[in-house]
Amino acid sequence: MSLRSRRVVAAGYGGPENLRVDDVEVPDPGPGQARVSVRSAGVNPADVKSYRNDGDPSRLPLPLGYEAAGVVTGVGPGASASVGDEVIVFRASGAYAGDLVVDDTTLTRKPPALGWPEAGGLMLAGATATHTLVATGVAAGDTVLVHGASGGVGLAAVQLAGLRGARVVATASARQHALLRELGAEPVEYGAGLADRVRAIAPDGIDAAVDLVGTDEAMDVSLELVADRARIATIANFARGPREGVRLLGGGPGADPGNDIRDAARADLAALAGAGTLRVMVSATYPLAEAAEAHRQIATGHTTGKLVLLP
C-alpha cells in the first residue's frame, strides 16, 4: 500500500532559498521496482546546478537528489531485491526523501561495514572519478594531476588512481595537504606558479590531468604539462574544453556522460568502500529540513569530501 513521506524540492529556479520540504504520497512499487526507506542521501554540485538557472516552469516543484542509501521496504513483481535488503541507490531521481520508489537496476547491495552516511555519499563521486580515470587512460606507472583534489570527486579520484598504480599529484589549499598525503597523493597548492610547483615534484612529466574545478588555471596548467590532449579531461570547464580539444565528461553540453562506465563501477566501488580500501570522507551531515544550508555550503566550492542528508 502507498504511504506518505517527505521530499525536498526546488519550488523555483535560482538559489537555495527556493528549497522546501513537501509531504508527498509514495506509490507502491511496480514491476521491477523497489521502495526504499532512505537512511542517507548524498549532496552534490549537480543538485545545485539542476535548479540554479531558469528552466521549464512545468518541471516545478523539482525533486532533488541523485544518490541515496537505505532499506528496501517493498518490492514489485519481478524485482530482484527483497524486503530488508540494505542498498545503495544510484542513479535516483528525487533522492532527497524519506522514502522513494526506484527501478531495481539502480540498486547495489550496501556492504555491512559501510556506514549509512558514507553509503549515501559514495556512488556519484566514485562513479565520476572512475569515469575520469578510464577516459584519460590512467594506469600503473602514470603520473596524473588531479585539480580540485579535496572535493568529493577529487578524494575518490586520488584514491582510485593510486589503486591503479599511478602516482598522483593533487592540487588543493594548504589546509588539505595532510589529508591528501595520508591518501597517498603528493599535494601542491593552487595559485600563481602552479605549473612550476608541479614540475618541481614531477620533473619526469605529467601523463594525464583531471580537471574537477573548471578554472582557467586548471585548464592552462593541464595544457602546459600534458602532451596528449586526449589525456586531459574536465567535468567542469565546458566553456574552454571544446576549444582546447580535451575530453568533456559528465552532464555538460557536448560531454560524454559515460553511463556504461559509471554503472559498471558501482559494484567495485561498493566492495572497495566496504573493505575500507576506498574511504568516503563525509565532512558534514544535515537533516532534510536543512537541505538549503547544505546547498549553500557546497556552492562555496570549498567543501572537503561529501555532504550528506540524513532523513
Rank of each mutant, 00 (worst) to 15 (best):
R4D: 14
W116N: 10
P45A: 05
R266W: 09
T303Q: 14
L107M: 14
L3T: 14
T304G: 02
A227Q: 13
K49N: 13
V221W: 09
G137K: 04
L60I: 01
A174Q: 13
E118I: 09
D47W: 10
G65F: 08
L124A: 12
R175W: 11
P253T: 07
A294D: 03
G126T: 12
S80L: 15
M1Q: 09
L194F: 02
V246K: 06
R52A: 15
G15Q: 06
T73L: 07
T234G: 02
V153T: 09
A166Y: 02
P61M: 10
P253F: 13
L145T: 00
R164H: 05
D196Q: 13
S5K: 03
S40Q: 01
G301D: 12
D142V: 00
S173K: 13
D263K: 11
V280N: 10
P45V: 04
T143F: 04
L278W: 11
A161L: 06
D47F: 12
A34Q: 12
E17Q: 14
G151M: 01
G141Q: 10
G126S: 10
G162D: 13
A270F: 13
L155P: 01
I232R: 02
L145K: 01
A185E: 09
G151L: 00
A178Y: 05
I201W: 11
R164S: 08
A140W: 08
L19S: 11
L145W: 04
E293V: 08
L100V: 05
G120F: 06
L160N: 05
G154V: 07
G78F: 12
A271S: 15
E67I: 03
P16C: 11
G301H: 12
A139Q: 09
R175F: 03
E244S: 08
R197L: 04
V169H: 04
G162L: 05
L122V: 08
P117H: 02
G274I: 11
A46G: 11
V48D: 14
L124R: 03
D260M: 08
P27A: 14
R52H: 13
R243L: 13
S37N: 11
R229W: 06
L114T: 12
A157S: 07
R181L: 07
S222A: 14
V87Y: 12
L122I: 09
P112Q: 08
G98I: 07
A156Q: 07
A174Y: 04
G137M: 02
G98D: 10
G301P: 05
A157N: 04
M1N: 06
L223N: 04
V169C: 07
I235N: 01
S150P: 02
S58T: 12
L155Y: 03
A127P: 03
D207R: 10
R91W: 15
L269E: 09
A81C: 10
M281S: 13
A170I: 00
S5E: 03
A92W: 15
S222P: 00
T136N: 00
R39A: 12
H295W: 01
P57D: 11
L310C: 03
R197H: 05
L309Y: 09
G30F: 15
P77T: 13
L194G: 02
G251C: 00
R109H: 15
V26I: 15
P29I: 05
D204C: 01
Y51S: 05
